[in-house]
């Protein structure tokens, strides 16, 4: 990776309806992390524990949109990040959480909180305002906000993430060749 010509790029990352696997894969770039931190500094991210994202150059989003909080966080990223990257299967097509999309939400909530085989009698669907409400369907993030780039994979390999980030930082469209582009 080339050295940064100017000030470091600000990067924010978040996992919406995801498993943090795409963050783990980012960490899997291993010693190349040293190169990366020469080029970027992290704003909101599980790595920094900053709670809200300020103006950033790049937003790295894993996970799809399954609840109201996901929407609010995604909008905050879109409003603050010059470039938004959709990372991994869940962000790109809803992924595992979207496997509920063929079921009515009512059936899902009922099965999980009221009528499932391991549910104690008297349990109800939680209604604490602290909990984000679920959307009827899980959506990929590009169905909610405009997205600039995509890095597919479940998760994308460290090499794919490294290549794509390099391309994007250099102002190029990410170009993943055979072996780097993967949907699984």
């Amino acid at each position: 990776m080339a050295t940064a010509p100017g000030p470091k790029l600000k990067v924010a990352t978040v996992s919406l309806a995801g498993c943090f696997g795409c963050h783990m894969s980012l960490l899997d770039i291993d010693e190349r992390l040293f190169d990366l931190v020469e080029l970027v500094e992290f704003d909101r991210s599980p790595l920094t524990d900053i709670k809200h994202c300020g103006p950033c150059d790049i937003g790295y989003i894993e996970g799809g949109v399954c609840n109201a909080e996901n929407v609010q966080v995604l909008r905050e990223f879109r409003a603050n990040c010059r470039t938004l990257i959709s990372v991994g299967a869940c962000a790109i097509n809803g992924g595992l959480p979207a496997q509920r999309n063929h079921l009515p939400l009512s059936a899902v909530l009922d099965e999980i909180y009221q009528s499932g085989p391991c549910i104690a009698t008297g349990c109800t669907i939680p209604n604490d305002p602290e909990l984000p409400l679920l959307l009827n369907k899980v959506h990929p993030i590009h169905e909610v906000v405009k997205v600039d780039y995509f890095i597919p994979g479940c998760p994308p390999s460290a090499d794919a993430i490294w290549k794509a980030l390099n391309d994007i930082i250099a102002g190029r469209e990410p170009n993943l060749g055979h072996g780097l582009i993967h949907y699984d």
Binding site: A68, P104, L105, S106, L109, D110, I125, P126, N127, L133, L134, L135, N136, K137
Partner: peptide, 9 residues
């Protein structure tokens, strides 16, 4: 898209 969840909760 939140209406079903509102109704359920």
């Amino acid at each position: 898209a939140l209406s079903q969840a509102r109704r359920m909760t």
